[in-house]
Each structure stands twice: as structure tokens, then as C-alpha cells.
Design a protein around this nucleic acid. Structure first.
Lengths: 208, 208, 208, 208
DNA sequence: TATGAATGAGCGTTCATTCAT
DNA sequence: AATGAATGAACGCTCATTCAT
């Protein structure tokens, strides 16, 4: 898919994939450290293990690197979410399990998520739409789990809002870390959020 | 206070205030449009209505403009929050009123808040701390209202988390606008969030 | 004389004199510290005790300040040389006395002389000529003393060269201070130079 | 050695050398004409035959150009002095030969030496020390020749002073050219200085 | 396919100078 | 006579991008 969006002059697709993975790995660290704008293409090339000339054989513009990075982050998030969620399960446990998995994931990928939050606006309109769609897909996955897990009638809007709340609360753990991680561990944070949510849904649950 | 942090070569303090307001007004629009990094100092000067030379009589570095913008946003938010919150009131209504006011405010200042979210990381460490503190102050205000308004015992952690949730949900209205504002108006968004919150707190309330 | 070369918009000549003395005093310190080019007009104004606007009432261009400074340095040097030299005396002592006075003067005004050496080239052609003339006058004074003091025939060229050597050796004490002042004090430096000179002139003298 | 002090982003060392020579050649002319401060980096680039971007591939800061120029001047001076001086010769002729060579050199490199005199102070402390050391080395070479050439006892201080005098008299030919070159040719200047020196040292010598 | 030297538009910033008050 | 806010040309420097090898 990213190959569709970011053309390369190199024909060998396996090589393109390999080089781009090097690039993403190198770039993500730099973007976390100093942000997209303050990272130079030379630094990216160096961190990727090849020359500036080679870098430009695999991308057209610096922005492409950012796109590749964002895309790869969402890819990884999506894969792990799909592993964690079983769409056929209908118990409340399946919801709490999904939340736990997602929050844990957000804890693991704090830095990456923070980068995405701060840098997507540097993408072109098209690329932003592409990334936004991935986000929508993820929220839709959460909506699905909620619908499956909650007995009783719930207006669609409420479902949507809960999904969005969960989604943002996961991210918030990372980008408000300076405030939250003084008071909570990822476990206590997860527990308390689930508790608040389920109280609101008139559910009892034995935590854990 | 910002005068303490951002020195100017101009002596007339009233003039400094006036020019800086011009600057903030001009810069915010540009930052919203194209981000801090892609906005040039010349553009800021032009949008502010004076020359590049004059701009630099009122700041030392480009970053100072960003700081002034962030500071002014928080200033305005804080002022409006203080107007909206009565610390002596103890009813649930005072909480819902605070939330309504805050969400309305976030609706009014969507663009500004978005800018802050995406650009604070471009500030120096010191300036970031300064801004972070303002944020902490605001969350503390929300905590206070929650403590005052909720009968019954609530662990401190729970209070903290609810305050953070409300704070982020307000901002989320702005920075997830492309998703949320398809489904909600600011009113329906506010109502649904309050409903979810109060359900969780085992309170009944006639909305509005 | 400098009033001829550096016009002022102010009529009151006494005031012009006073202000310019303030200026020279302030500027010389700055030039010694950081050089002419790295000193700003604002700094000069501040060090002079008045505003940038006032500064420009007494000069036309920044370069004028440098001229005034150079002129004042030469003025002071010339005055002290004239005090030290008696054109009617004809003994060898009168030569050694002149050298001693001049070297002492160069020791006192090391910094000023260094500044002049490094910055005259920043003056306009005209101003450089004016300063150069002052230098020629000084060398001529030394020539006069030499002619008066030395018995026997000496070709004019030799006199000229000796005068130039003395002149430069005086300055060298200041601008080669890092090397010379490790080995010599101003007194030992003076003694040794005089000794070398007089040996060459087949003269005996009881040093001081 | 200068490669140690002035890093370049270009890897090909031969190319670095070539480009830097272009740079030095271009810059020296400009510095002579208008001084270091009034010469712009774009002018240097143009005079060197490449673009401003390329210039900065071979230096880090404008000051580096000045350092390279100073370094190259001293390098050339040193090389020619080493050719001219035979440390095993012990006759007076070896001293006069050294002086003649050195003065001739100073005549050839008048402009360069003038530039150095006026601009070293614009170098950083470190670079100034480096250049000063080269100067000390040169003076030491002269001291050596003097010690070797002069029979009889001479206090160390006297040797040092003579070496310094010769050193500065060489430079003086260039930086006081407007005065000296009216009266002398380089040959007559050299002869007269040698004559004065040897008289002082109670030596007879057939000039030439 | 890989390299890295070359380019130059464009940036942030400074500061001599002016002029209305 | 004195002030200082305003100006903008010009500076040093960076870095994304290209292209000959």
C-alpha cells in the first residue's frame, strides 16, 4: 500500500521494502528525539545506514519519510489490535480485554504515538486523509467490540463517543505522560479507567 | 508575566503590550494555517502589520512568538474558566455548568488549542515547563469543582482521572473535529459526555 | 580640526565638544574590548551616556566615531611627545630621553594604539590620509631629535630609517605584548633597545 | 594540520585541499581589498569559483576562511624561511642571507602580511593562539641564526630583542609601505637595516 | 544500484540609520 | 536639543534536492 503512495526509482520491490524499513527505523528515533522539522535528510540517511543519494532513490521528498513512518506506526498498532480483539466474543470481558490490550500497546508505543500526534499536520492533505482513515478504522474496531459486548440498547452516538473516549484515553496516557505518570502506573491507569467506564454502563465486573 | 520571560528592547510597556497583541493575533492565524515551522518571521511581521525589524524589537527569537501565543491562549482559557466556576457552589449543577462552559470554550478556541497541541514541543524546555504548569493549574481547577460537587467518598486518584478525562475530552472536540463533528454538535457532544460521566457517578440529573 | 571633518547638526560648539568627549571615552573602551565592527552604535550611545538619536546628532556615520577616536589618540600622543621633546637640546641624552618618554607613552596607551593599528583600515580614504599625516608628523619629530642629537655625518636615509625603527619599536611593545612582555619589563625593553641603538651609533652612554 | 582545525563535510581529502586553495586565493584578494568584515561569504564563494552552498561544505563558519588564509600565509613564509636558512652555517653571512631572504619574502607577501596584521584579532581565541605559535616559531628560527652567527657573548635577552626587531622590521616594510616605499627600495631598505644592525654588533661586513 | 559533491532559494537575525515627537 | 520606535537591506548559514559518476 505505501508503495502505491510513495514511488521509488528502484525496481526490485524486495529491496525497496528492506531499505524503507531501515529508513523507518532510523527516522522514528530521530523524529522522537528532535521532531520532523529539525531532523535533516542527511541525518535520516545516516541513521538508515546509507547515503543521501540512496535515500532519494527510495523517496521523492522528505515528507515521504514522515508518511512512511506514520503508516508503519498505524500498521503496527492495527496488527496488534487485530490480534487482541476477537470479533465473535460478546462478553464484557472481551471489551475490558480489548481496552487492556490497547492501553498496553499505547504504553509500549508512547513515543511513536506522540510523534504522530505532533507531526501529521506536516503531511500533505492526501497523506493526512490516508492516515485519518486508518484512525477511523481503529475507532470502528473499538465500536464493534463495544456493540458486541454491551447488552441492552445503546444509541449509536453513545457507542461512537465511548469508542472515541477510549481511543483518546489510550493516547492521552502517552502525550500527557508528564502529568499522568506521576500518579498512575499503566496498570492502575487502566483499572481506574475501566472502572469509571463500567460504572457508567451499569455493569459490574471483577477487575482482572 | 510574559514580559518577564520575553524581553523587549522597547521601553514603553503599553506599546509593548499593544504590539504583542498585534503579533499574537497575526501569528495565530498563520500557525493554524501552516504550522510554526513553515511560518516565516517575515510573514509574522507582515500579518502583525509591521516590518521585520520592528518584530525583532519586541522579541528575541522566533520561538518567543510561539511562547507568546501559547501564553495568551492559556491566559484566555484561564480567565474564562475562572468566570465560569464558582468555588463555593457544591451542587452537581456546578460541575455540569463548569463542563459546559469549558467545552463551549474549547469549541470557540478550537484552532488555538490545536496549534498549542501541535507546537508546544517546539518551545524550549523552560517555556514548555511554564506552559505545562498552566495546564496543571487548569486541571487542578477542574479537580476542585469535582471534589466540591460530588457527594460521597471518592479516591483521590479517581478525581484526578476524571479531571484529566474532562480536560482532554474538551480538547478532543477540537483536535478530532474531522471525526467528531460529523456526528455531534458541540451541544450534543457536551450532553452525551455529561450523561456518560454522571451515569458513572450514580447521579441523576435533568440535563440542562 | 575634527569639527571640520565630522559635521554635527548641533550649533553650540562647546556642547559638541563635550558630547564628543563622552563618545570617545565610551567608544574607545568598546573598541578595545571587541573591535570596531563588533561594536554597535547602540552600545556606543549607551556607553556615552545618551540615546542613539542623540548620538546621530553629533556624527553622520558610525565611521565618524572611529575617526574621532583615532584623532583623539594621536592628539594625546602628540601632546605628550611635544612635552617630552626639547628641539633646542642637542645632546645624546635628549635622544634617549625622547625614546624613554615615547616608549613609556606606548606602554600607557597600549590598548589605544592596538585599536588604531587594527581599525584604521576601516576609515575612508580621506580619513586614513589625515591619520597617516599625523603619523608622519610624529616620525618627523623623531627625525628632528635624532639629527640634533647625533654628531657626525649621517645620510638622511639612515636618519629616516632609525626614526621609523624607533617609532615601530614603540608600537611593537604594545602589539607584540604577548611575546615581548614575557621577557621584558617596559624598563628593560627600553634599556636594551637604547643600548642596541647606541652601540650602532658608536656612542657610549651611561644608561640612565 | 588545518584539516584538524577546520572540519569539512567532504570526504575526498584531495578535493578538500583543492577547493580550499581556491578559497584562500579568492579570499585573500577580497580581504586585502575590503577587509574581513566587509567581505561577504557570497563574495568569497564567487571569488573562489563556487556557490555559497559549496563554500559551506568546506568550512563551518566564515571565520574559518580567515583562519585558513592566515594558516596558509604562515605556511608559505615558514617554508621559504626554511629553504633560506642553513642551521649549520655559522658565519655572519648566514645571518645577512637570512635577513635578505626574509625581507624579500615580506616584500613579495606584503598584502597577505598586512591582512594578517589587521585581521587576526577576528579569529577565535584558539585560532589566535595557533597563529601566535607559528609566529613564535619563526622568531625562534631567527634567534637560532643569530646565536649561530654571532661570535662573542650576547645575553639571551639581547638575542631575543634583535630577533624581534628583525621580524617586525620585515613586516614593517609592508604595513608602513606608504611611508617607507617613498624613500627606499626593498634593496636599499634591506642594506640600510643590515648596516645599522651590524654596526651595533661591532662587525664589519662587505655589504652584498 | 549507490554515491556524495554541488546547488541556491530561503531562512532567522542584526543593526546602521531616520524621523516624528 | 533629545529621544527611541521604526525600518529594511543585507548578512551568515542551512538543507532539501539533483545529477554526474
Amino acid at each position: 500500500m505505501p508503495e502505491k503512495q510513495v514511488p521509488s526509482t528502484i525496481k526490485d520491490e524486495a529491496l525497496v521494502s528492506k531499505r524503507r524499513n531501515q529508513m523507518i527505523k532510523g527516522a522514528v528515533t530521530l523524529f522522537i528525539e528532535k521532531g520532523f522539522h529539525k531532523t535533516t535528510t542527511r541525518e535520516i540517511a545516516k541513521a538508515s545506514g546509507f547515503s543521501i543519494g540512496t535515500l532519494y532513490e527510495y523517496i521523492r521528498k522528505k515528507e515521504d519519510v514522515l508518511f512512511l513512518v506514520c503508516d508503519s506506526i498505524y500498521q503496527r498498532v492495527k496488527e496488534r489490535m487485530e490480534d487482541a480483539i476477537d470479533p465473535h466474543q460478546t462478553s464484557v470481558q472481551s471489551l475490558t480485554h480489548a481496552i487492556r490490550s490497547y492501553f498496553q500497546l499505547m504504553d509500549d508505543m508512547q513515543d511513536e504515538v506522540l510523534v504522530m500526534y505532533q507531526e501529521v499536520k506536516s503531511l500533505s492533505r492526501d497523506a493526512q486523509d490516508y492516515v485519518l482513515q486508518k484512525e477511523r478504522d481503529m475507532v470502528a474496531m473499538l465500536e464493534q467490540v463495544i456493540v458486541n459486548s454491551l447488552p441492552g440498547e445503546h444509541p449509536e452516538e453513545e457507542i461512537k463517543l465511548i469508542a472515541n473516549n477510549i481511543f483518546v484515553q489510550g493516547q492521552m496516557w502517552g502525550f500527557r505522560r508528564w502529568i499522568l505518570q506521576r500518579t498512575f502506573t499503566i496498570e492502575s491507569y487502566t483499572d481506574t479507567q475501566i472502572q469509571l467506564l463500567l460504572k457508567g454502563l451499569d455493569k459490574e465486573e471483577t477487575l482482572q
